[in-house]
């Protein structure tokens, strides 16, 4: 058991198994939709977790990249005649480029100062999306052409479940490998102590920038999926509240735990659906549940439960 747990592949196989087995329990297409949303958000959260949990850099503006990805697949096909899949890639490249340009100066900031700088970046994206109505349709948003792959028009929730699920497993494995790579190890060193890493000869600035770009591209792809899946996009996708939601998913699931990213996304996508039975109390309850989770599982759900399990075994 112990050796099996230690192998790198196990979590990936487990997650893939979840993606495949879960639909057997789905009573309707609505559950496919929720499942697809979970994997789409989990993808963005994995990226953000690389940045927050491993490199120790907070971003309160990550929805900005979600927005760039989402509007790429909306604007690309309509104004430039690019197929959706190409627009998705273009969006990811654009996000990476923006992350490169923005990241260079602001990643030098520390802690809360980095938080406010990224927050400002996210707001800038949202403001531009909302103001440039000629391109984006303004605050009411614009409709997004359906994704077409080899003359197959992807529209149903179950098709999106499989696409999002597969991509998530891919992103998950990529992230795990990244963490085991030399880059990943130096990132964790940066997380522990930036000064010490510098002394050890790690190029802190460029490592941080690399991970920022990667996490931006994860978010961008997730944003593109979200827009294609919904068929309509509004500037809310890049808003402050979305950024906070992504951070909440990371922290709730567990910073530095890739599996935690999935758990965090599950909790915050499913919870609002469950809480609807409480009608006007749903907001208050959501806040309360977030607080209770953070107080009692302060390292996040997955790391805290893992620690508890470890304790029981001894």
């Amino acid at each position: 058991m112990r050796t099996l747990l230690d192998t790198r592949l196990l979590p990936a196989i487990a997650v893939a198994a979840i993606v495949i087995v879960l639909p057997w329990f789905f009573p309707s297409a609505f559950y496919y939709r929720i499942g697809a949303l979970v994997f789409i958000f989990a993808l963005a959260v994995v990226g953000l977790n690389l940045l927050m949990g491993f490199a120790g850099q907070v971003s309160l503006g990550h929805a900005g990249f979600l927005g760039i990805g989402a509007y790429s697949v909306a604007i690309g096909p309509v104004y430039f005649g690019m197929p959706s899949w190409l627009s998705l890639f273009a969006g990811a490249v654009l996000s990476g480029l923006v992350a490169f340009l923005v990241g260079r100066p602001i990643l030098r900031l520390k802690g809360h100062y980095l938080a406010v700088a990224t927050l400002g970046f996210g707001l800038l994206v949202a403001i531009v999306l909302s103001n440039e109505a000629g391109w984006t349709g303004g605050p009411d948003g614009m409709s997004v052409p359906k994704l077409t792959l080899f003359s197959w028009s992807v529209r149903s929730a179950d098709a999106w479940y499989w696409i999002a699920g597969t991509t998530f497993v891919g992103g998950f494995i990529l992230a795990l490998n990244l963490m085991q790579s030399p880059t990943g190890r130096s990132l964790q060193a940066i997380h522990d102590s930036e000064i010490a890493s510098l002394v050890l000869g790690i190029d802190v600035a460029s490592k941080k920038l690399t991970i920022f770009i990667i996490s931006a591209m994860y978010a961008s792809v997730a944003g593109s999926y979200l827009a294609l899946f919904n068929g309509h996009v509004t500037p809310d996708v890049a808003g402050f509240l979305r950024s906070i939601e992504l951070v909440a998913m990371v922290v709730l699931g567990g910073m530095g735990s890739i599996v935690g990213s999935l758990v965090g996304a599950i909790v915050l996508v499913v919870l609002p659906q469950v809480l609807t039975v409480f009608h006007e109390y749903e907001q208050a309850l959501l806040g309360l549940i977030v607080m209770v989770f953070m107080i009692f599982l302060r390292r996040g759900i997955v790391p805290s439960l893992a620690a508890i399990l470890q304790g029981w075994r001894k």
Binding site: M52, V58, G111, I244, V247, A248, V251, L252, M255, E280, Y281, E282, Q283, A284, L285, L286, G287, L288, I289, V290, M291, M294, I295, R298, R299, G300
Partner: peptide
Amino acid sequence: GATPVALIMITIGASIFLRGVAQI
């Protein structure tokens, strides 16, 4: 003893909670 981000998350939870109570 929780991390700063976890503490911020608690205050964000509190803000959602207070807003939810205020609307009722």
